[in-house]
């Protein structure tokens, strides 16, 4: 069998005294969509940030396409030991707060990294960027600055920007939590479309309906550990663990 796209084994992350991740084991196959649910502070976002090494874990293994990204060739201390380039050119991350570059247009946001990091020619990067922005429904917003776009539009630009680096895995960190309710759907539809195209994705979300529709696997996290995982119907309709039941009850009450 081929290597899983991502494999996490015994991942621990501490911030000083606080242990945010307490031994995470998880396997994600190519083309799989995993939704991570859990109360705030359960370590969901930190897990994503570990996977793309924004917050390198202290302990454990993360295999990305079979390669341990926590112990690179320059293993030792400091940033150099992490396989940053290997990881960041394979893993795309979309943030809750969009984090678009406000001094650049939508198209420039999308073309910057391909030009600077992948050394793509400007015309090539622009053609690709235009195609991606068209795909997320923003063909008419290429030259707008972020402050002139709605939250939903900004988040779709951010998705296009991550896709421009041709990632093998996309990570979504509560990407609809900062949006007005009427803008959530356009962003979720964009992610849904990516799932249909076979992109491997890890989606941290509070949108249970979306998880039910799109996820191949739903993971429930609490206090830095995976409490329960399984198909959406197993975890969402028939949870085994008390903590899962309680959390789902609270979310559905909203």
């Amino acid at each position: 069998m081929a290597d899983p796209m991502l494999k996490l084994a015994g991942v621990h992350k501490r911030f000083g005294e606080l242990e945010v991740l307490r031994g995470i084991d998880l396997e994600i196959a190519k083309g799989e969509v995993v939704c991570i649910l859990g109360p705030s502070g359960s370590g969901k976002s930190t897990l994503l940030r570990c996977i793309n090494l924004l917050e390198p874990p202290e302990e454990g293994q993360i295999l990305l396409e079979g390669r341990d990204i926590c112990r690179g060739p320059k293993s030792g201390t400091g940033e150099e030991s992490w396989e940053l380039n290997y990881v960041r050119q394979r893993v795309g991350l979309v943030f809750q707060q969009f984090n678009l570059f406000p001094h650049r247009t939508a198209l420039q946001n999308v073309t910057m990294a391909p030009e600077k990091v992948l050394d793509r020619a400007k015309a090539e990067a622009q053609a690709k960027g235009t195609e991606l922005l068209t795909r997320v429904g923003l063909a008419d917003k290429l030259n707008e600055y972020p402050e002139r776009l709605s939250g939903g539009q900004q988040q779709r630009v951010a998705i296009a920007r991550a896709l421009a680096m041709e990632p093998h895995v996309m990570l979504f960190d509560e990407v609809t939590s900062a949006l007005d309710p009427e803008l959530v759907k356009e962003v979720l539809d964009t992610i849904r479309e990516l799932a249909r195209e076979g992109m491997t994705m890890v989606v941290v979300t509070h949108e249970l309906g979306f998880a039910r529709d799109v996820a191949d696997c739903v993971v429930f996290m609490d206090e830095g550990q995976i409490v329960e995982q399984g198909t959406p119907s197993q975890v969402l309709d028939d949870p085994r663990e008390e903590r899962t039941k309680k959390f789902l009850g609270l979310v559905l009450e909203r």
Binding site: N52, L54, L84, N85, R88, L100, F101, A113, K116, V117
Partner: peptide, 9 residues
């Protein structure tokens, strides 16, 4: 900075 770094810069 995080967004730029996550894009490989």
């Amino acid at each position: 900075m995080e967004a730029a770094r996550s894009l490989g810069m």
